[in-house]
């Protein structure tokens, strides 16, 4: 059905998409967690309640979430060129992916921590524990299932972002779908590429569901 050349193209594109999504997810997980924890801690009910810190963090988070991803990539071109020397290829998409998805995950983390936060913090405080230990040993472990669910949603968002990035030169399945299907009129390649993206997303969702269910001890 497809030539060897085309099969190679699919494999390469799949690899690039997985690479971009995976690396970006790792960074977003780290930065988003930090952002979410600080949003939570400085908020109205947080242990380090600080109106100004919260409002400014919250402002940048909302700003980051409201810039359309395509525009974010364009805005970040000088920055990307500065740190990576190029604006093409899968690695070049990473800064935009990370900066685009971190606020998204940050908000999810903030919400997750608020879920049972009040009771858990009070319990920790009554043990005489400090803020650091309460976050590290109570809040995060107890919120883990919910944090994993949030990370699943975030990863899926990142995968769809990679398609947008792909269309403007980052490679991956999005690039393939756009280049062959739209520009060269080979619609079947677009369909297969889309199918692969869908499979990837279903796979991520499945892994996320299983992990969070396993962790929830219900």
């Amino acid at each position: 059905m497809f030539s060897d050349l085309e099969l190679d193209l699919f494999l390469k594109a799949l690899y690039e998409t997985v690479y971009m999504s995976f690396i970006a997810t790792i960074f977003v997980c780290f930065f988003g967690l930090l952002l979410g924890i600080f949003l939570y801690l400085t908020s109205e009910n947080g242990m380090l309640k600080n109106k100004y810190a919260y409002l400014s963090l919250s402002f940048f988070t909302s700003l980051g979430r409201s810039i359309p991803f395509l525009i974010l990539i364009v805005l970040l071109i000088p920055f990307t060129r500065l740190i990576l020397g190029t604006i093409l290829g899968p690695s070049a998409a990473l800064p935009a992916l990370i900066i685009g998805a971190t606020p998204f995950y940050g908000r999810i983390v903030e919400l997750s921590l608020h879920e049972k936060g009040k009771e858990l913090v009070e319990t920790g405080l009554s043990f005489g524990a400090n803020t650091f230990n309460i976050v590290l040993k109570i809040l995060i472990p107890e919120s883990l299932p919910s944090l994993i669910r949030g990370l699943t949603v975030t990863t899926i968002t990142i995968i769809s972002y990679t398609s947008i990035a792909g269309a403007i030169g980052a490679g991956g399945l999005g690039n393939l779908a756009y280049l062959y299907g739209y520009a060269r009129n080979k619609i079947e390649i677009t369909i297969i590429a889309t199918f692969l993206i869908v499979i990837l997303i279903i796979f991520v969702q499945l892994i996320g569901d299983i992990t969070s269910k396993k962790l929830s001890k219900k």
Partner: peptide
């Protein structure tokens, strides 16, 4: 000082 609560406040994952 020990404390107990109406909603028990146990850690579900422990």
């Amino acid at each position: 000082i020990g404390m107990i609560y109406q909603s028990f406040n146990l850690l579900e994952r422990k």
